[in-house]
Design a binder for these strands. Structure first.
Ligand SMILES: [Zn+2]
Ligand SMILES: [Zn+2]
Ligand SMILES: [Zn+2]
Ligand SMILES: [Zn+2]
Lengths: 164, 164
DNA sequence: GCATAAGTGAGAACCGTTCTCAGTTACATG
DNA sequence: CATGTAACTGAGAACGGTTCTCACTTATGC
């Protein structure tokens, strides 16, 4: 199980060298803002961008441990929290009790459709349009927060029958 | 804190007697289907309908313990799972790490806007219309599951400043 | 340099939820 | 009614993802 995800982890090394050779500037400033830079956080940020879809902290951890076997899980949890705080990562629901995160470079507000087979992600428009907000207001509510998590299977996982 | 929720718990006793006097038939058949009836599950089901909005397992537990002080938390967890399995209850997100449940008698598919101050609930239409499904299909996806949880503040909590 | 505050890693702690297990009980069946 | 059996209960242990603690290290500004 998790074959496809592990495969993406392996690709990570290739993606890393690709990044460091052709794009010397790391994504850390966007990831951590004015926070301090450490080798661990560099690896973690580069690992996050190497995933082309949603990932769990565990998956990111094993990904990063290919480069630094000694890195602690608490460090990854802290880095992920920091990156979510800086808007570099986004939480996109959970899978089997593990929170899912995602690097999405699209600035405008939208939601995500996550493939539960491989983590591939598609964009989905936000359902909370003016009409919905007005409808809530008509019932006396002010909307403060919303979660829209859609799960499905991508074309590839449908073909391979990796349904979960 | 939690004043309003505790208040709803106190009202539960009144609601219980009201139910048992004017409506002798309990909601158990809808709650547990063909499962066995026990005094504990009767209390739990009646407690669930006594809440007029979203509640956590903890809240339901203390509610039920007013009638049966010895009831175990595992019993309530099991009863809630059974009721969700029978469609009697619905999960509507979480608050502070506690899962929220809701008794909603409206049969057609929709979602809920939960007041984070007091648990009061408003209905919200499902955003996953034909267009959204088609849009997903155009990207090769088949949607299998979706969560739409909207949080806000009801008119009463807005007045009292119970924002969280 | 130096001070200081942030980051790290190991492991413990947390905490909502689930599991285990022995005892109890609802209920179908005859 | 008696009886068998499978569901239910309650206490407490276990689970597992995440957070915290603490001693240590290190990036960074002055
Ligand atoms: Zn897929
Ligand atoms: Zn939205
Ligand atoms: Zn309210
Ligand atoms: Zn829906």
């Amino acid at each position: 199980m998790h074959a496809l995800r592990v495969c993406r982890g392996v690709c990570f090394v290739k993606t890393m060298s690709h990044l460091s050779s052709s794009r010397p500037e790391s994504p850390e400033s966007a990831a951590y803002g004015r926070g301090r830079r450490s080798p661990q956080r560099s690896l973690i940020a580069q690992g996050a961008v190497a995933f082309d879809g949603a990932f769990t902290v565990d998956e990111l951890l094993s990904c990063v441990r290919e480069s630094d076997a000694k890195i602690g899980s608490a460090t990854v949890y802290r880095a992920v929290s920091a990156m979510v705080g800086h808007g570099f990562l986004e939480a996109v629901g959970e899978r089997d009790g593990h929170a899912l995160y995602l690097r999405c470079t699209d600035d405008e507000h939208h939601h995500h459709l996550v493939c539960t087979g491989c983590g591939t992600v598609a964009h989905a428009p936000c359902p909370l349009d003016d009409h919905a907000i007005e409808q809530a207001a008509a019932q006396g509510f002010v909307v403060t927060r919303h979660e829209v998590n859609i799960y499905g299977l991508c074309a590839q996982c449908l073909r391979h029958g990796d349904a979960r």
